[in-house]
C-alpha cells in the first residue's frame, strides 16, 4: 500500500445564498495515495467541482464555509493561514482547469505564466527558470517549446493550451495534481493524448491525481479508484474494477446504462427520472436518489443513509441498492418524469 498524500475527512463545503449556507459538498471522506488516480465522477451539480476547489481553497471565502479536515501529508490545510496555503498551492498541489482558453491570462506569454509558479516557489535564477520552463514545455509534448515560450495563449490550439495548463500545474513537481474536467473542452483524439500525457507524467513523478470528470468512459480508461458523487455526497466508492464490473448504487448503475454505445444501436437509451436536485431545496434527510427511482418502495431506503462497506474498499450509500431493479421501458412513451 502506497502512503496517502491527501486524506479528506468529512469535508463539507457550504455556499452562502441569500444569507443562508447550503452544503454543496456534504461530509465527503476519501484519500489519495502516491502514484494513484482517483476519479470523482458525477453529473453537473453533484458537487465534484466544488470539491476540487475546496481542496485548493480557491472558493470565494466571503461566501464559502469549509468544514472538516483536508490533511495534506498529515497537516490539516483547512485551518492554516492564507499565506501558508500559498506555500501549498502550486508547489505541493497543482490544478488543471477545464477551459484552457479562459484559464490562461490573455495578456501574458505562455513562458511568463509557467515561470510565475517557479518565481514564487523556487529560488532559481532567471536563466534557470527559463530553462526549466522550456524543459516543462518539452515534457508536455509541445513541438517547438522555445517558440511557444514567447507565444500568447490565443495563438495556440485548444490541445496545446491544455498542455500549457498542465505544465503550469506540474512546474514545481507537486505530489498531487487535481485535474478538473481536463479533457471536456477538447476533441476526442486530443483527449486521448492528454490522458496519456497525464499518465506518463505520473509514471515519472509518482504524483497522485484526482481526476474530476462527468465522463465515465474517461474514468474507465485511466482511474485506479472511483468516487461517484450525487447531490453533494459520495454514493459509491471503489476500485475501477468494482465500479465497472459490479456497480451497486442505483445512480451508478443508471448512469452507466444511459451511455450510448455500440450495444445500444438505435435502441432506446436508459433515462433517469427527474432531475438532479438543487442545493437550495433538496431533502437531506432521506436517500437523495430516492425521488428518481420512485418504483423502489420507501422501506428499501435507509432513514439516514450511510456508506456501507460491501466488499473490501467498496462502499455504497443506502440500502436501496439491494432492492434496485431497472424499470421496464415501453417504446413510444416518454418516461422522463419532467413536468
Amino acid at each position: 500500500m502506497e502512503k496517502p498524500i491527501l486524506q479528506i475527512e468529512n469535508l463539507t463545503t457550504s455556499f452562502k445564498i441569500k444569507d443562508k449556507y447550503y452544503m454543496a459538498v456534504d461530509h465527503v471522506s476519501f484519500s489519495v495515495s502516491e502514484n494513484e488516480i482517483v476519479a470523482v465522477v458525477g453529473e453537473s451539480g453533484c458537487g465534484k467541482s466544488a470539491l476540487a476547489l475546496s481542496i485548493m481553497r480557491l472558493h470565494n471565502n466571503q461566501r464559502t464555509k469549509i468544514e472538516g479536515e483536508i490533511k495534506y501529508r498529515e497537516r490539516n490545510i483547512v485551518t492554516i493561514s492564507e499565506g501558508q496555503m500559498n506555500q501549498i498551492r502550486g508547489k505541493e498541489i497543482g490544478i488543471i482547469f477545464q477551459e484552457p482558453l479562459t484559464a490562461l491570462n490573455p495578456l501574458m506569454t505562455v513562458g511568463d505564466q509557467i515561470e510565475e509558479n517557479l518565481t514564487f516557489h523556487t529560488k532559481l535564477s532567471k536563466e534557470k527558470k527559463r530553462l526549466r520552463t522550456i524543459e516543462l514545455l518539452t515534457q508536455v509534448g509541445i513541438p517547438s517549446p522555445t517558440r511557444t515560450y514567447d507565444q500568447f495563449p490565443h495563438e495556440l490550439s485548444g490541445g496545446m493550451r491544455q498542455r500549457v495548463m498542465i505544465s503550469i500545474a506540474i512546474a514545481c513537481n507537486p505530489s498531487l495534481v487535481i485535474a478538473d474536467e481536463p479533457t471536456t473542452a477538447l476533441d476526442v483524439t486530443i483527449q486521448a493524448q492528454i490522458l496519456e500525457l497525464l499518465k506518463s507524467i505520473q509514471k515519472e513523478t509518482k504524483m497522485g491525481i484526482i481526476l474530476i470528470t462527468h465522463d465515465l468512459s474517461v474514468v474507465a480508461e485511466v482511474a485506479d479508484r472511483v468516487i461517484v458523487m450525487y447531490a453533494g455526497q459520495v454514493v459509491e466508492m471503489g476500485t475501477v474494477k468494482q465500479i465497472f464490473t459490479k456497480p451497486l448504487h442505483p445512480y451508478t448503475r443508471s448512469l452507466l446504462k444511459s451511455i450510448p454505445s455500440q450495444a445500444t444501436n438505435k435502441k432506446r437509451l436508459h433515462v433517469i427520472d427527474g432531475m438532479v436536485p438543487s442545493i437550495v431545496n433538496m431533502n437531506r434527510e432521506s436517500c437523495r436518489f430516492s425521488p428518481r427511482i420512485p418504483w423502489i418502495p420507501c422501506n428499501a431506503h435507509e432513514e439516514s443513509p450511510e456508506l456501507h462497506e460491501v466488499a473490501p474498499d467498496h462502499w455504497v450509500r443506502c440500502t436501496c441498492y439491494k432492492h434496485f431493479y431497472f424499470k421496464g421501458l415501453q417504446r413510444g412513451e416518454i418516461t422522463n418524469g419532467i413536468t
Binding site: 485548493m56 480557491l58 492564507e82 499565506g83 496555503m85 500559498n86 506555500q87 501549498i88 498551492r89 502550486g90 508547489k91 497543482g94 490544478i95 482547469f97 477551459e99 479562459t102 484559464a103 490562461l104 491570462n105 490573455p106 495578456l107 501574458m108 510565475e116 509558479n117 514564487f120 516557489h121 495548463m165 503550469i168 500545474a169
Partner: peptide
Amino acid sequence: DYTRTARSKGIPDNKIYTRHILR
C-alpha cells in the same frame, strides 16, 4: 478563470492584483 489559475499557483493576493488583475 485566469485569476483563479493565478491563485492556484500560490501567488499572494497583492501580487495577483499587480500582475494579473490590474493589467
